[in-house]
Structure formats: structure tokens, C-alpha cells
Design a protein around this nucleic acid. Structure first.
Lengths: 104, 104
DNA sequence: TTTACATGCAACACAATTGTTGCATAAAGA
DNA sequence: TCTTTATGCAACAATTGTGTTGCATGTAAA
């Protein structure tokens, strides 16, 4: 049978399966605690992404539901950060057997 | 700006963002060179997946277009295998900066 | 209190994905 | 040749995903 299957994993991969969301991940990797407006501004400036604020919000929600980012309120702005250990805990355990390449 | 963006990456993640396809990857990790019918049989027996042959074919095509698996003809059967180094070449370079956690 | 700011939510349109059924092709064997 | 086996492809329906517009909510500042 192999690995007991984690239903969170496909959701996590699906969340990463979009160019805009990968750019958001890249932005947050460079700098945590960014507000929605900061992220919109940087995506427009650095990557010519022209989406409405609401569209970006939905991408952020998708990433949050996949536990890839976390949010916190600071005054009236909501700041977004990478979930520190999401990769170590989810992707990496799944990925390791493929790296080893042993057929058992 | 950061990393020069690889458009193949989101496609690869999206291909992994489906439970059935993750099960196929798991099957092929355990044993390469499986035909369509072998895969169908094992998915039904071991994971209670009840999909038609045509549905499995489309999942296999999705994985192949993402360069996660490769195919070869052996007589009149088409056998499927993992693309040996797809993870090392695509996911891993992208993943590393997140592991390090350095903010530059 | 009024204004501006930051975000949330719902409805709608459009596109992409997923799975089915039905038929086609092509090769191996009786 | 006829049948079986293994696969491919197209059309259709149902679902999900993506992005927009418009309006609502709540908080900080003037």
C-alpha cells in the first residue's frame, strides 16, 4: 500500500498550481507580514500582474486554506506570512521516497 | 524580482493537485513500467478508486504533460514510468529557498 | 461625526477540469 | 478472417476555478 494517504497534500499542491499564487509565495518568502495592498502593489510593479484587489484576496484565501500562509491582524490591516514549517511537514515527507528512488 | 520564473512549475504542481493522480504517482513509485490496465486494476483493488479506463488515461496524460511520467510502447501496450529526475530538476530548486528560510 | 482607508462578501460570467458514453484504430491470436 | 485485447479520441454534462463589479463592514483619523 505504501504511505497512508494525506488528503491535505493534494489541496496543498493544487494551491501551488497557479502562477499568481507562486508569485505571492515568492513575495512572502522575500518579506513576511505584508498587507493585501502591499502585495498588490509589488505584484503589479515587479511582475506586471494586473488583478483587482478582490482577486488577490481569493488567491490569499486559497493559500491560507492550504496552510501555506498564515494571517494576523495589525490594527486595521491584515498581514500575511509564510507558514514556517508547512513544507517540512507536508511536502518533504511525501517527496523523500521519490528522491531515494528505491522500489522497495 | 527574485527567481526567474519557470512557467512549468505551476503546471507541475497543478498535476500533483489531485488525489487520483497522487495515487498513480504512488503506484508508479512502487513499480515502474505499468500499463494502463495494470494501473486501473491496482487503483481499484488497493484504493477503491472506481473510475473508467478513459478517466485514468486523462490523468496519465496530465501527468505526462507535466513531465512527471514518461511512456513507452512495448508491443501493443503502453507502459508508464516515473520521470526519474523530474523532482530534482524542478520542484527541488524551487523548494530549497523556502527550506533555508533566509530573508535575504 | 464625518471621511478615508482596509478588508470582506455575494452575484455574475467565463474558462478550465473531471468524468461519462460511444465509437474508432490497430495489433495479436484462433 | 474474425475475435479479442489495448488504447485513442470526440462529444457531452456537471463541477470547480478565476476574475470582475458592486456593496457592506469596521476602524482610524480629522
Amino acid at each position: 500500500m505504501g504511505v497512508p494517504f494525506d488528503p491535505k497534500l493534494s489541496k496543498l499542491f493544487r494551491a501551488l498550481g497557479d502562477d499568481t499564487r507562486l508569485l505571492i509565495m515568492e513575495q512572502l518568502r522575500q518579506r513576511n507580514d505584508q498587507s493585501l495592498f502591499e502585495l498588490c502593489a509589488r505584484l503589479i510593479e515587479e511582475h506586471d500582474i494586473t488583478l483587482t484587489r478582490q482577486a488577490i484576496t481569493r488567491h490569499l484565501n486559497t493559500l491560507e486554506e492550504a496552510h501555506l500562509i498564515t494571517t494576523a491582524w495589525r490594527g486595521r490591516t491584515k498581514v500575511h506570512s509564510l507558514t514556517a514549517d508547512s513544507f517540512e511537514e507536508t511536502i518533504n515527507p511525501w517527496l523523500q521516497p521519490f528522491f531515494k528512488g528505491d522500489v522497495e
